[in-house]
C-alpha cells in the first residue's frame, strides 16, 4: 500500500487545491509588495524590517489556506462519500490518516516557502537599495522556518478537526468561529479583574500560541519556543484524537 502516493494524487487532482494555492500565493505576494512599500524608507533595524515583511506576508492568510487544505483532506472524503473507496484501497486506517495529515501539511509548507521566497524577491526588487537582506540574521531565518512549521501545524489541525467532525462545513465554521470569535472573546474575558488569576491561560489558546510562534516578543504571549511547542501539542493532540476516531468509527 502506498497511502502517501494516493493522498498526493487525491489532493492534486481536484481544482480546489490549486485554487487555494493560487489565492494564497497571490495574497502572499500582494502583502509582501504592500509591506515593502510601507517599509521603504523606514529608518532603523533593516533586518527587523525584512523579518516583518516575511512574517506579515507569509502568515497573514496562509494559516487559513493551510487549515482549509487540511480540512479538505478528510472533509471532501465525507462530503462526496469517497471515504469508502479510500478505505477500500487503504484499509489500514491509521496509516491512511497519517498520509492525510502529512501530505497537505507538506504541500502547503512548500507552497508557503515558494510564495514567501517569491515575496522576498518582489520586495527586494521593489525596495532596491533601501533595504538589505541579511540571511544570517537569526530572526529572519527563524521567522521563515517557523512560518512553514506554523502552516504545517494549521494543516494538521484542520485535518484533525475534519476527522473528528466528519463534516467539511462544520469544520470550517468551527475553526473560523474559534479563531476569529471565541478566542478573541476569551481574551476580552481574561481582562476582567475577576479572572486575573487565570488570565495566563490565554497564552495557550491555539490562535495565540500559533501567533506567538512568529510574532514579535510580548510579555503577555508565549515566546517562539513556547508558542511552537504549545501549538504543536495542540495540533498533534487533535490529530491523535481524530486518528483514533477515524480508526474506530464506521466509514
Amino acid at each position: 500500500m502506498n497511502p502517501f502516493a494516493y493522498e498526493w494524487l487525491r489532493i492534486k487532482t481536484i481544482r480546489s487545491t490549486w485554487v487555494m494555492i493560487t489565492i494564497s500565493t497571490v495574497l502572499t505576494l500582494a502583502i509582501a509588495i504592500i509591506a515593502t512599500l510601507a517599509n521603504k524608507g523606514t529608518a532603523g533595524n533593516l533586518d527587523r524590517n525584512w523579518s516583518d515583511i516575511v512574517r506579515v506576508s507569509m502568515t497573514a492568510m496562509t494559516w487559513l489556506f493551510g487549515a482549509l487544505l487540511g480540512i479538505f483532506a478528510f472533509g471532501h472524503e465525507y462530503r462526496y462519500g469517497t471515504i469508502r473507496p479510500t478505505l477500500s484501497a487503504l484499509p489500514k486506517r491509521r496509516v491512511a490518516a497519517l498520509a492525510k495529515f502529512v501530505v497537505p501539511a507538506a504541500l502547503f509548507s512548500t507552497v508557503t516557502a515558494i510564495s514567501g521566497a517569491l515575496g522576498i524577491i518582489c520586495a527586494r526588487i521593489l525596495a532596491g537599495s533601501a533595504l538589505t537582506i541579511s540571511w544570517s540574521a537569526n530572526h529572519l531565518i527563524r521567522t521563515f522556518a517557523l512560518t512553514l512549521l506554523q502552516v504545517a501545524l494549521w494543516a494538521i489541525l484542520g485535518a484533525a478537526i475534519a476527522a473528528i467532525t466528519r463534516s467539511q462545513i462544520a469544520s470550517i465554521i468551527g475553526l473560523l468561529v474559534w479563531v476569529l470569535l471565541i478566542e478573541n472573546l476569551l481574551v476580552l474575558l481574561f481582562t476582567w479583574d475577576a479572572l486575573e488569576s487565570v488570565k495566563g491561560v490565554r497564552k495557550y489558546l491555539p490562535g495565540a500560541a500559533a501567533n506567538s510562534m512568529v510574532g514579535t516578543p510580548d510579555p503577555d504571549v508565549l515566546g517562539w519556543v513556547g508558542g511552537s511547542i504549545t501549538f504543536a501539542l495542540i495540533a498533534i493532540g487533535f490529530a491523535i484524537v481524530g486518528t483514533e476516531l477515524f480508526a474506530r468509527r464506521d466509514a
Binding site: 500500500m1 502506498n2 497511502p3 502516493a5 494516493y6 498526493w8 494524487l9 487525491r10 487532482t13 473507496p85 479510500t86 484501497a89 487503504l90
Partner: peptide
Amino acid sequence: LRMLCAANS
C-alpha cells in the same frame, strides 16, 4: 482510477 491504482501499486 489512477489515484486508486497509486494506493495499491
